[in-house]
């Protein structure tokens, strides 16, 4: 299971970085989100497999409980990354109207 997670995280990372380096701002935004998903998966892998049963349930005592903290961390990270993702999409929307393009190469008035 750990190896599967490692491979999945790696693939997601590479997809995210690939998308982030695109010229199209929408694809860049998608890459942004995929990267955060990858890091959330990594956070989950850190503590999810140390136990056998979910914590704080009626299954208490039937085995080693898994770590609830990483799940709390991931929830927080998801909320934050989702918020900034929505903000990014909103800004790209305004930028597409203001600059009449979503090609990152053409939005380059700041130089020097």
């Amino acid at each position: 299971m750990n190896i599967l997670f490692a491979i999945t995280t790696g693939i997601l990372f590479s997809i995210g970085v690939f998308l982030l380096l695109r010229r199209d701002l929408i694809k860049v935004a998608m890459g942004y989100y995929v990267l955060f998903t990858a890091i959330n998966l990594f956070l989950l892998a850190v503590g999810a497999f140390n136990g056998d049963v979910p914590p704080y349930t009626t299954m208490e005592g039937q085995g080693q409980q898994s770590d609830p903290l990483v799940q709390a961390l991931i929830l927080t990270a998801i909320v934050i990354s989702f918020g900034s993702y929505a903000l990014l999409l909103g800004m790209i929307n305004i930028a597409s109207r203001r600059f009449k393009t979503i090609n990152a190469d053409e939005v380059d008035e700041l130089q020097g």
């Binding site: 982030l20 701002l25 860049v28 942004y32 990267l35 955060f36 890091i39 990594f42 956070l43 850190v46 503590g47 903290l69 990483v70 961390l73 990270a77 900034s84 903000l87 990014l88 800004m91 790209i92 305004i94 930028a95 203001r98 600059f99 939005v107 380059d108 008035e109 700041l110």
Partner: peptide, 28 residues
């Protein structure tokens, strides 16, 4: 041009956040 700079910074700072989260996960 503030909008352009803001998009740029949000993407760059996301990389910083990513590294920070990575560091946190490794420490944990």
């Amino acid at each position: 041009l503030g909008l352009e700079a803001a998009i740029k910074y949000l993407l760059i700072s996301a990389m910083g956040t990513l590294f920070l989260l990575l560091g946190i996960a490794e420490i944990y």
